[in-house]
Structures are given as C-alpha cells and as structure tokens.
Design a protein around this nucleic acid. Structure first.
Lengths: 151, 151
DNA sequence: GTTAATATGTTGTATATGCAACTCAAGAAG
DNA sequence: CTTCTTGAGTTGCATATACAACATATTAAC
C-alpha cells in the first residue's frame, strides 16, 4: 500500500514546487495585461515583442528568440501574425542570412495606444504585488536573464 | 514627429513592465519542468492538476478552476485530456450539480514516477534562482493567492 | 571546390490558455 | 406551477508555446 507514501510525495511537491507557483503568478499577471489590452486587439506577448523590436531597430527572429528566451518556432509564428496585422514588415533581401524586421508606422501607433492601457494594468499589478513584489519580480528576471540559455 | 516620444514610451514599458518579466521567468522555469517530465509524457500543468486532485480528494472542475486560478474552459480541456490518458476518472452521477473527479491507480503511479523527475527539475530551478529567488517566488504566490480572484 | 557541420526559419503536431456563446440543471421570484 | 436568474461545463475560436522534422543557406574542413 503506497497510498500513504504517494500522499507524502504529492504533499512535498505541492509544498515546494517552484513551477507551480511561477505558473500561477504568470496566469494571474498575464490576465491583467491581456484584459487591459483587449480593446486594442493585441495581447501581452505580441505587444512585448513589438516593444522589443521598436527599441532594437532592425533585428531578426533569432535575436528575438535569444532575448525573450522564446523557442524559434514560437517567434516564427508570432512574427507571422504580427506581420499579417501590419505592425511589422520583414525586409528579407532574398539573400537572407537572417531576416530584418522593422516596426511599421501602424505598429508604432499601436504602441502608443497600448501604452495607455499598459499603464492601467501595470498599476493594478503594482497594487496586487506591492513594491516588494515588483522588486522580487525584477530580481528573479535579472537572475535568469543573466544566466545562459541551457539550450 | 512622435518618433522620439514613442521611443521613450517603449523604453518605459521595457524598463518597468511586470508582465514581461513574469512571463520570461515563466517560460524559463516551465521549460525546465516540462523537459524533465517529457519521458513520462506529461507536462508540468497536468502533473500539477493531478497533484492537486490527489491531495484534495474528490473535487470538481470548478474547484480546480478556483484553486489554480485557471479559466473553466481551460480546466475542462485539461481534465478531458487527463481522463483520456486514464489518470483520472469522473464520477458523474447523472444528476450532476457538479462533477467529482478522482485520481485513478494509473494516475497515482504516474505521480510517483513523476516525483523522481520533478526532483531533478526542482533542483535545477533552485540552482538557477537560489534560496532567495525561491523565497521570492513563494512570497509572490502567497500574495496573489490570498487575494480574491478579480473575476 | 566538394563535403560536412552549423545556423536560420518554417511547418506539422500537441498542449496551455482565455473569451464568447451555448446547454442544462438547480434555485429563487411571482 | 411557470419564469427568471444563476451556476457548471462544453465547444468554437484564437493566441502562446515548444518539440521534431524539414528546407536552406552559410561556414568550416579537407
């Protein structure tokens, strides 16, 4: 009868699992921003990529993948959707070692509109987490982003 | 020419956005656990639900939704997949105000096998985040889970 | 200069996630 | 007893995410 043993293991996982907590926090926080951005028909993720692209000039999917620690196929699809919406354009020069993506005028406009909504969500998140929480998030991010991608 | 203005806004978002960081952390951490669990053909999410169910006896989708702060349709689908894999069974008594879900014997076995893999991922996460990081995650989770679900 | 190895992207497949709309059943109002 | 209102779940739709397999192109080896 490993029933009791199983309960102990499950309890240990529940009590200590980092992923469980990180994922919970992610769901709650992402929801906040997604809801705020809904009127603009853009989600947190794509808005984030757009911001990154805007700040990094012409970059390729590979750069996004490395910077945001996102699988290349994930980036590929997101870029594709963003292109379809007209927020970015791809300057592939046929001879494409890599691609060069640029934020379009529409993309820039979206960015400015999104800023207003972002501010609201950001405020709610701050209210929920408190200054300390926000600092924690920042530190966690710094810790992980400084480490190499374990491929 | 709001070009400069737009850059400032984008920079402000990049510098402060909580969602961006939470999501980044989530991707990195979730990946760790998903990779560890792959041999068992289960992902972090379903393993988490299974653990929760195992510890809470017979509960319904609604309970899972509330506890894990997951949209009911998300739960619905995850439960469906888990049922197909034989890890849980649903005791719907025809007269169903709510359903009662129970972890099956196979589910329990999976749980025990997953524990071994979980330990590895957990160790990696601990190495990456450090004791302080893990504490931060725990506090963030406590903060959010104590708060009500803003529906 | 071929060949082997590597880097860059895309596409098939599957899970995770949430919103909107819908079905059904259980209660509350009358 | 009907009607109206909730509560619980399901399903259509769309995005987010990653792995595996594939197509190409670039570079390194000889």
């Amino acid at each position: 009868m490993d029933e009791k043993k199983a309960v102990e293991l499950a309890q240990a996982v529940s009590d200590n699992c980092i992923a469980r907590r990180v994922r919970f926090v992610n769901r709650v926080i992402t929801n906040l921003y997604d809801k705020a951005l809904r009127p603009l028909d853009v989600k947190t993720n794509q808005a984030g990529i757009l911001v990154w692209l805007f700040l990094h000039g012409e970059a390729g999917p590979g750069d996004i993948s490395k910077a945001l620690r996102m699988e290349k196929s994930t980036v590929s699809r997101n870029v594709s959707r963003m292109k379809n919406k007209g927020w970015i354009e791809i300057m592939s020069s046929d001879d494409r070692p890599t691609q060069a993506i640029k934020v379009t005028e529409d993309g820039r406009k979206l960015l400015q509109a999104a800023y207003v909504e972002w501010t609201k969500a950001q405020k709610k998140a701050l209210d929920l987490l408190g200054e300390d929480g926000v600092d924690s998030v920042r530190r966690l991010y710094e810790t992980l982003s400084s480490g190499r991608d374990p491929k």
